[in-house]
Design a binder for these strands. Sequence first.
RNA 1: GCUCCCUUAGUGUAGCGGCCAAUCAUGCGGGGCCUUCGACCCCGCGACAUGGGUUCAAAUCCCAUAGGGAGCACCA
Length: 496
Amino acid sequence: MEQEIELQRLAPQLLVREKKEKVSRLRELDGAGPGFTVRLAPYPSGAPHIGNTRMFILNDEYARKYSGKLLLVFDDTIGSEEKFPDVESYSLIEEGLKWLGVKWEGVYYKSDRLDIFYTWAERLIHAGIAYVCMCDAETLRKNREEGSECVHRSHTVQQNTGYWKMMVNGEYREGEAVLRAKTDMRHRNPAFRDRVLCRISERVHPRTGTKYRVWPMLEFSWAVDDIELRMTHVIRGKELVMEDMMENFIWDRMGLKGPVFEHFGLLRLKGVKISKSKSRAEVASGAYTGWDDPRTWSLQSLAARGFRPEAIRNFILSLGMSLADIEVPIDSVYSENRRLLEPEANRYFFVDEPQLISISGFDGNSVVESYLHPDHPEKGRRLIEAGNSVYVSSADMRSFGGSEVRLKDFCNVVLRAGKSEFTGKENRDLQRIQWVPSTGSVKCRVIMPDGSRVEGLAEANVAAIPLNVPVQFERFGFVNPRGWEGDAMVFHFAHE
RNA sequence: GCUCCCUUAGUGUAGCGGCCAAUCAUGCGGGGCCUUCGACCCCGCGACAUGGGUUCAAAUCCCAUAGGGAGCACCA
């Protein structure tokens, strides 16, 4: 402390703290340079949601950082009973990415590339790295547990080539045959013992119908496409590390060099439940308003709430590339967005659960003038016609009933249900509450993040505000005007 | 259970053998300002999981322990 005082006397300039750059720099990736190429691999089974944005933004951000390329590769293999591609998801994803400000060049579809996968499968068979296995799922599992090899493993290349042709030609039914990699049946990780590369599915694909029945597994399709599409890096969540091993195994055996793998840890948002399959069902049944329903947490729903894409990006970048699994409160996202909305959103009065009071001792009407934004007077003013009866919110009545409050910008009253006494117009340091006139106020319906609706009244000025430009309902929160339902104006609630 | 990963203030995060008496944001406490309980400004609080080792020197490298997470078989 003494030293600091001394330093202050001798060289005050040394004490001036430099404001560090706020932008969090992403760490450098190994081997990144000219030609840097990464890919985005969304699975088209619904709208993209906030949980998917980490992958989107990190890939986009690194592609920009290294002036590289970002390819959009729809990972639309056939999936499973629970997880299957659907046709409207493709455009939902592109729409979400555009909104997020992700820039990609080139769109690819795995479902267009089956012939390439087949060619590679044949190469693996010829190289003796892969074989057709006719064990049923149960037997396969049992053998893996025991580490024992089945008879199919020792078939010749010629036999496997024949079986493979039969698979592709439809001579086996779903579940009757798979293509497996000859990794090692005694590998320490049981899941790695002769993994399945391709399997048969008789489901209908939204893009290719029933044209193909043999579909690659994720890691095989990427072992192929990370080479074919010339990726230099793969940035993916760490839940996919085992897939790296499988891709590397294939490349090693074929004498190929693949991209550098980079991972980020799992991100959980505290207070956010996302279930894509549930959202999909509720959107389809009409229980949700659509993909803009806040309960989907889709990018469409965030846009509807008035989120700025930069807020999401700043939030994701603040987490960096850490491998640690983290749980971050959703409020962190809100505070990033508030930072952007606060200086811009105009202010209006809104009362939730309106309750009418009359003001005794106050005669006549007056016109109240308020700033659209208290910190930016240059944005102008708004006028509210005030009379001797107004609505206040029931919550304020409960909290402040009986005591003197200031009806903001208007007058002071002792707040009572029914008759409240006028106590003056001067601006004293009282609890301030919002209010709206008894006539001419606009009925509002605010859709909350949990899907519930808050009904209330807002000052008449809101009827004329542009849609989809977020405003602040003072002491209520930031809301985004979306349109009208009959005589009620509909808003989506962003956050406080 | 098996395989892999992680651990720095309440929550995130920077840190890559000496520049660390550890960064930034948020949070919390106090004060200021303002016609919002919002925003802004100022001051303060608060962390290297534990134990061993390597080294002249460890938040940083190695080992063990504890805690947390993920993956686990024909989903991506």
